[in-house]
Deep mutational scan, measured.
Amino acid sequence: MASQGTKRSYEQMETDGERQNATEIRASVGKMIGGIGRFYIQMCTELKLSDYEGRLIQNSLTIERMVLSAFDERRNKYLEEHPSAGKDPKKTGGPIYRRVNGKWMRELILYDKEEIRRIWRQANNGDDATAGLTHMMIWHSNLNDATYQRTRALVRTGMDPRMCSLMQGSTLPRRSGAAGAAVKGVGTMVMELVRMIKRGINDRNFWRGENGRKTRIAYERMCNILKGKFQTAAQKAMMDQVRESRNPGNAEFEDLTFLARSALILRGSVAHKSCLPACVYGPAVASGYDFEREGYSLVGIDPFRLLQNSQVYSLIRPNENPAHKSQLVWMACHSAAFEDLRVLSFIKGTKVLPRGKLSTRGVQIASNENMETMESSTLELRSRYWAIRTRSGGNTNQQRASAGQISIQPTFSVQRNLPFDRTTIMAAFNGNTEGRTSDMRTEIIRMMESARPEDVSFQGRGVFELSDEKAASPIVPSFDMSNEGSYFFGDNAEEYDN
């Protein structure tokens, strides 16, 4: 783990906690998980779902989305002020799938948001429990990260689609708070800032007046979040320049895209947490497990152990491969979309394939898809080993990566060399080191050039047997250095459309 220093740990961010010791953190995270579980059980009762239907990941996603929508204050306010045809701002819903006479049927349900809020609060001892809501947002974000390569979004903001390893959390809503900021990748933060800068260039009043003052505060806050992700002084200094700019424009845009590229080699610290679907927490609570009393951590053995003992089902389209669908969801559960496939294969105990080789589309089923041909199958979400999630980018030494994705962002704290394609990355730096950030740029390029592919990161860190909950005997895996390590390699994943 990167030293926490003055930073709060993510469990504290996750639970809005002030400084807590490890036991208190485990208890408050457990409380959050228990609340999600209780809410899910109650919703299944309301909807009269069978046990099997309640364990269907598509039903879980609909129920999670309903509660997130019920608590989305800004959108609710907007919907009330701008009524649109056929949208009731006070209601929320989605597809629920039921097994009827041996076939899967889709039923569109509609609930009062007020009623959903009441059920959620009741499951969370009367609190709004925003930490639990954020947790579900991060699960949705991790699922998107594993399912889609955001080529269009990258290109629109002047970045290269091969930089997708920097895009963790790119679909997280803005209201996801400190826990959300911690899991956002460098590219995601750059993209958010670039969008602001572009608006400022096109709209003279963007930075002016009372609204402009708020915009400015948001801009500086985002700059500080991004600065905190960088691990070298030169990158941090460049972020200070971007933040202090009187009138952010093209120079800042250039600096930010430069920094994003540099992060492929001088990786930023991005938190990883295993956020599971509500249909995993519900049955665990129903079986009598007391998360608050037992304590829970999002970055240790607990999620692995929970998945070892969970039964989750998914709808499967006619030509999809259930094992591939399982891999997709497994990666999402562990926030591992940008991790090295060699490491993932070792931990999972079966070969993890790149996205383009998977015969599976996303987990969600569109409303126009034919239910007649839908089957369902068990998702295999178990693992051979477990490993500690990392909050750091690993040290800054790398190795060759593949054509589709030119770097990785480690999820697990496991000893290995970190793949990246130096030639491709360095070719993108057209040696432009003039301007006010020239000395920093020169320094950053120097550090990137001296990074050695064969150097090892996370020295001495290994994986653990599932029986080793105290992480007492690390097993340090050895990897084939020459092997392909990137998930979005030469990829044809669908595009994420909101």
Score class of each variant (00 low, 15 high):
Met239Ala: 07
Phe479Asn: 02
Pro419Ser: 15
Arg261Leu: 10
Glu454His: 09
Pro277Tyr: 05
Arg121Leu: 12
Ala332Gln: 00
Ala129Cys: 14
Gln308Arg: 14
Arg452Gly: 12
Gly300Val: 05
Asn142Val: 01
Arg221Tyr: 09
Gly288Val: 14
Ser413Phe: 00
Met481Gly: 13
Ser60Lys: 04
Leu154Phe: 09
Gly209Asp: 11
Ile475Gly: 01
Asn498Ile: 15
Gly295Pro: 06
Glu449Asp: 12
Ile57Ala: 01
Leu344Tyr: 14
Ala233His: 01
Thr147Glu: 03
Ile57Trp: 08
Tyr219Ser: 11
Asp290Tyr: 08
Ala403Thr: 15
Leu108Ser: 15
Lys91Trp: 04
Asp112Trp: 11
Asp203His: 15
Glu53His: 03
Asp203Thr: 01
Met13Asp: 03
Pro83His: 10
Gly37Met: 11
Arg355Gly: 10
Asn498Leu: 08
Gly185Asp: 05
Ser467Phe: 05
Thr188Cys: 12
Met13Phe: 02
Ala263Val: 08
Leu256Gln: 02
Ala2Gly: 10
Pro95Gln: 09
Phe230Asn: 04
Thr390Ile: 13
Gly249Thr: 00
Ile347Arg: 00
Gly431Asn: 08
Ile365Trp: 07
Gln168Gly: 12
Gly86Asn: 02
Ile365Arg: 04
Ser326Met: 06
Tyr148His: 11
Ala182Gln: 02
Met481Phe: 10
Asn59Arg: 00
Thr411Phe: 08
Val343Arg: 07
Arg436Trp: 04
Ser407Glu: 01
Ser367Ile: 02
Trp120Phe: 08
Gln364Thr: 14
Ser9Leu: 13
Phe412Tyr: 12
Val343Gly: 06
Tyr52Thr: 09
Arg361Ile: 09
Ala182Cys: 15
Asp290Pro: 15
Val242Phe: 01
Phe206Asn: 10
Ser28Val: 05
Met159Pro: 00
Leu133Glu: 02
Ser345Trp: 03
Ser245Asn: 12
Ala85Tyr: 12
Ile365Met: 11
Ala181Glu: 03
Ala323Cys: 13
Lys7Ile: 08
Leu315Asn: 06
Glu372Tyr: 06
Arg75Pro: 01
Met167Val: 10
Pro161Ser: 14
Thr442Ser: 15
Ile36Leu: 15
Met1Gly: 12
Met137Asp: 05
Ile197Asn: 12
Gln409Met: 00
Arg384Asp: 05
Cys275Leu: 05
Arg461Asp: 02
Arg361His: 05
Arg267Gln: 06
Tyr97Cys: 15
Ala323Phe: 12
Ser9Gly: 10
Ile33Val: 13
Leu307Cys: 11
Tyr296Glu: 03
Leu108Pro: 08
Asn59Met: 05
Arg121Pro: 02
Ser359Trp: 04
Leu307Thr: 11
Gln12Pro: 09
Gly300Trp: 10
Ser383Arg: 10
Tyr496Gly: 03
Ala178Leu: 14
Lys103Thr: 12
Arg38Ile: 13
Gly126Asp: 13
Arg267Leu: 14
Arg382Cys: 01
Ser3Arg: 10
Gly394Ala: 09
Glu64Ala: 07
Phe429Cys: 09
Met1Gln: 13
Tyr219Gly: 02
Phe253Val: 14
Phe253Ile: 12
Ala471His: 03
Leu344Lys: 11
Asn125Met: 13
Ile347Gly: 03
Arg75Cys: 06
Glu375Lys: 11
Val352Pro: 00
Ile225His: 08
Arg436Lys: 09
Met191Gln: 15
Ala181Ile: 02
Met105Arg: 12
Tyr148Glu: 05
Leu381Ser: 09
Ala179Gly: 12
Val312Gly: 03
Ala131Tyr: 10
Ile25Phe: 08
Thr373Cys: 14
Glu495Cys: 04
Gln398Glu: 00
Arg98Asn: 02
Ala22Glu: 03
Lys214Gly: 03
His140Lys: 01
Ser407Ala: 15
Ala387Phe: 05
Ser3Pro: 09
Met371Phe: 07
Gly462Arg: 06
Arg204Gln: 12
Gly485Pro: 05
Ala336Gln: 06
Leu266Lys: 08
Lys87Leu: 02
Ser69Ile: 04
Ala233Thr: 15
Leu379Pro: 05
Met167Leu: 10
Ser84Ile: 08
Leu276Asp: 11
Ala182Pro: 04
Met13Tyr: 02
